[in-house]
Design a protein around this nucleic acid. Structure first.
Lengths: 243, 243
DNA sequence: CGCACACTTGAACCCCCTCAACCCAAGTGG
DNA sequence: CCACTTGGGTTGAGGGGGTTCAAGTGTGCG
């Protein structure tokens, strides 16, 4: 486990930028009317992160909230001996830092070059007080994350390795289908270790399971970070536990 | 797996009852001012459930929301072949049904005689529109549940059986300490199968681990549903993965 | 008393982990 | 240009933690 340097780059205050932000409609910011975009822009700043840079540390005071505007982030928790559990991957549009507590409940690290919108706690608080629609939107976000977390608990507690990997591939296909048209070609910004730490497995089991799928002609693996789903229905059955 | 009958008992509309509700201050209802309690009482009805009765079914339309006012409830998800994952236990004061989706993401069943406050979706929506403080409170609730879910993912994905059982016992001690004074005597309203399905283990492993703790003089088991924690610090170390 | 049910205990097995070697592509430097 | 290194990924062999299957032990309740 490498020590992460903590040197995010602050580009600029978002003066005027929220109006031209192309991810606004897919994020919580869509709750803010066009007329109030100035307030939103004033409350946020932009950060650029390189791959591997950490920007939320579990246990640290939760002074900031973030909106991912480009790239992919991993959210994870650690045990003292280094065991890691990735609780989720956050992509474009994802809001980070939902926490009633004043310390972060998880850590976050960029898996690829990432762009973030940063809100300080007081400024977010002020925005929430002034725009109830934003609070409603955050509640919706929290609820859907809660549902995803419950799905993941089912996966971690009760699914076999094959079922886990199949579920993971399907979730990647669905994620991709939301932004682009349906596409059976998956890009994986995370490495095998991250996949393993997300699925509660080891790197070897993930690798073995993927090659098993490949040999069964259910997927193709043109490169380490690219996977093509050949038999979507089969993966669905498997992910649902129907063998 | 037994088929649950779906026959909840509706006692009465809560006309006036919210004012004397002794769990209001520990629930989301504390967000409502005394002056507005009439609105709250009008929006809700009370239900009594017997042990084993199910009142939320995964996939069914989420028409109602609930507040547990007495007893313990298990929240769970099922795989088609019957594998069960319990995602949490809800006790007095717990709000149920947080879901942006129009179908429930989980099922719920009473583990002992349970009393519920029921809100219909439209009435809750109306309350939320009229009382922003309630929405804030729900968001806080959702956030703390999210944090708990992340803890559980770490447990399910990366902890050993001993660590899981230790974590479970500690969470029970903490739950109990909140309402009563600190007490190392735990009452377990759920049976061994429920504990197993919560921890991602089998009933036998739970039993074996508990007897292991007992033989090591870390706990006592006066009865099947009672456990006395003798060595709190040891359990803490174990639960944290520090052996 | 005797049945039912929950829990415990024992023995064998197996899925996944651990450990180790190997492959391969991308640097890197002499 | 090529030897060497480095890091991610794959593959193989063996072992172990937890499951499975099965029997035994309460314990409450008719």
């Amino acid at each position: 486990m490498q020590v992460q340097q903590f040197r995010p780059v602050v580009i600029a205050a978002n003066a005027g930028a929220c109006g031209v932000c192309n991810v606004r409609r897919q994020s919580v910011c869509s709750a803010i009317e066009d007329a109030d975009l100035a307030r939103l822009a004033e409350a946020s700043t932009t950060r650029l992160l390189a791959k591997g840079q950490s920007f939320i540390e579990e246990g640290a005071p939760s002074t900031d909230f973030f909106n991912v505007t480009a790239g992919t982030v991993k959210l994870y928790k650690l045990l003292p001996d280094g065991r890691q559990q990735i609780t989720g991957f956050a992509q474009t549009g994802h809001f980070l830092g939902l926490a009633v507590s004043h310390t972060y409940a998880f850590s976050a690290e960029a898996l690829e070059p990432v762009q973030l919108c940063r809100f300080s706690r007081p400024k977010l608080r002020a925005m929430l007080d002034d725009f109830p629609a934003l609070e409603k939107r955050l509640l919706e976000t929290a609820c859907s994350e809660l549902a995803a977390a419950q799905d993941q608990m089912l996966l971690l507690g009760r699914k076999t390795a094959k079922e886990r990997v199949a579920s993971f591939l399907l979730s990647r296909v669905k994620d991709r289908s939301q932004c682009c048209q349906f596409n059976n070609r998956i890009h994986l910004p995370m490495n095998r270790l991250d996949i393993a730490d997300y699925l509660g497995l080891t790197i070897e089991t993930v690798s073995r399971t993927l090659t098993m799928f490949k040999r069964a002609r259910r997927i193709e693996i043109p490169s380490g970070s690219e996977i093509i789903v050949l038999d979507y229905a089969w993966l669905q059955q498997l992910a649902a536990g129907l063998y």
